[in-house]
Design a binder for these strands. Structure first.
Lengths: 356, 356
DNA sequence: CTGTTAGCGCATTCAG
DNA sequence: CTGAATGCGCTAACAG
């Protein structure tokens, strides 16, 4: 049931040399071999379709050429780009990715153990969630296993390699954009800021919103704050509440900062059925970007997560650590969101209508 | 830089027994050991925090407890559920997934080689794309490596384990649904049916549409067929063309079968700016489902891919093969799409409007 | 019932 | 410059 595995010994035998000679030639080691034997070995390897067994190799080299990637998937379309970009830098270097999807801390711990048993050379943690407990990561650190965490809440205090994105800035820039457009009443629909699970990003984005307003001397009214819980449904309900509270179209805020894209979908829905047009009646800026965002009605102005960048940098950090004997100093990197200005904020014109 | 690895020998030494005794006890092998020694070994292992090295184990067992999952990602939100569900069945059995994202055939071949070098026990291929060349899979088959392919075009003729979903049926059911609602003019916006890359699914879904119409004795007019190329933008443009061709609202078809969800996003957009309401003026059914589909405006009636099911079944097939010495007969499984009736087809009422 | 022995496939000293 | 010997950590016969 297994392929008749051809080993280094088979090659040696066929080339009429010793095993170690084959190994040296194939690994390009710096002891000179006669061109004659080199040729014979190369040819034998070719003829036999020899491929070194990576497992056996890792046994002696004490490195496997694998990295474990552990993610707590809540927002799939985000982490997938992290995986891809990490893979894009790891693969050319001969590394392969072990993947584990871990819904909670306990299964994360389990996954780490399983991958450590398989002797991965390092880890990348991608958490798009509220998971915060990082005590077990401290143990990893103590064992001097290289790893980097991406977007993990409350790790700033730890001495880990970490890549975060600036949620505060996202809220701030989104709101600034609206302010610059002349809006003065900018309501917000936020993610889960209290209770559990409680998302750090919801808190940070909200702070950014507040700061931008404060800088303009605008007093934020509690009436402008609605909780949408980061879900489509939550965004929908928050908006209905907003509409009800306003009572009339003229009393609506003129702009809206919606803390994530999921909620925006619901917001758009509620607004539509209330006859409130975006951006004519109310402008909207959100956070997050999917392949659909640019094609919705209206297309959404958003701040896009630097997910691909994060994965790429994480992989590069690992690679650098792999190449070095001693421990490299830990890196703490903060990435900015990328503003994508489209229709929902009113900056861009809508397509010309088609009349019959 | 590596954790001071504790080996089975350390445990043996501490428990004052031989290495093999430790191995037997820890692996629950069926030779009886004195309760005394068993206790000592267990305790020593515990105290030393011993964890067997999976790499070393796989060397001798000739199986690694890993499966390679190779996907050509085009539609991310689809395959991600395949991965997750496969993982859900593999993990409890002690298997770990190696992941590789391969944009084209060449890198797929490369990835297979890399994973074979790492001695994976089997493969799952997930292709949501037009990739069709499967010659290298035939080699895999010849080497008796267990694998199953999901949604790979033109593999029917091969003797592989394969899981497909019934694109024809999707088109058929979608159209039937529209027909049952009383529509008689059902236009379609299709995926790339000719040229390269050319998607089998586009062709199949289109056939289903045609068949449903034919069964009702409805002659399909070429005027009802538009190519949207499976993209948002394509859907948008196809719809503009449809509108232009109709010339007036009254001449529009009353229903639309859109062959995938991406295109639907664009269709909705074009229709919206033309003042054509969905579903009041035109009903719409599509194929594909994301977390957003149910919350869009209007929410989309779709046929959802059986992606999770596919991943689960694939994993189960592998597991069964792993447990058996001889080759199991290959399985060819056809899965149905799942109809999700929502607003866009007109079956469900829209939410009550909120008036000021 | 337990310990000794022999590899799994490979890379790496170290003599010759 | 080359090949024989050693061991990575573990399991599986095989004796005792």
């Amino acid at each position: 049931m297994r392929r008749k595995t051809v080993t280094i010994r088979d090659v040696a035998q066929r080339a009429q040399v010793s095993v170690s000679t084959v190994s040296q030639i194939l690994n390009g080691n710096h002891s000179y071999v006669s061109a004659d034997k080199r040729e014979r070995v190369l040819q034998a390897a070719e003829e036999l379709q020899y491929r070194p067994n990576a497992i056996a190799r890792s046994m002696v080299k004490q490195r496997t050429g694998t990295v474990g990637m552990i993610f707590t998937s809540v927002v799939d379309h985000l982490f997938i780009h992290t995986i891809k970009s990490a893979q894009a830098v790891l693969k050319p270097e001969g590394y392969t990715i072990f993947l584990a999807d871990t819904p909670d801390i306990e299964s994360e711990i389990q996954a780490i153990a399983a991958l450590q048993d398989r002797q991965v050379d390092g880890f990348i943690f991608v958490s798009m969630t509220s998971v915060a407990d990082s005590a077990h990561l401290q143990r990893l650190k103590a064992e001097e296993v290289p790893f980097v965490v991406i977007n993990r809440p409350r790790v700033q205090a730890y001495d880990f390699n970490q890549i975060q994105w600036n949620d505060w800035e996202a809220g701030y820039l989104a709101t600034r954009h609206l302010l610059n457009l002349g809006h003065t009443s900018v309501a917000t629909i936020c993610g889960p800021r209290q209770g559990l699970p409680h998302w750090q990003s919801a808190f940070d984005r909200h702070e950014g919103w507040q700061q931008a307003l404060a800088e303009q001397g605008i007093m934020v009214s509690p009436d402008w704050i609605f909780d949408g819980n980061y879900t489509c449904q939550g965004g929908y309900e928050a908006t209905r509440q907003l509409l009800q509270q306003a009572g009339s179209k003229s009393k609506l805020p003129t702009a809206l900062f919606v803390a994530n894209e999921e909620m925006s979908i619901g917001v758009l829905r509620a607004l539509h059925y209330a006859g409130v047009r975006v951006p004519q009646d109310i402008a909207l800026v959100s956070v997050g970007d999917t392949p659909f965002t640019a094609h919705m009605t209206p297309s959404l102005t958003t701040l896009a997560h630097p997910v691909a960048e994060a994965g790429q940098i994480a992989a590069q950090i690992l690679l650098k650590q792999f190449a070095t004997k001693e421990l490299l100093p830990t890196q703490k990197i903060m990435l900015s969101f990328d503003m994508r200005v489209r229709e929902s904020c009113g900056s861009n014109p809508e397509p010309s209508e088609i009349f019959f």
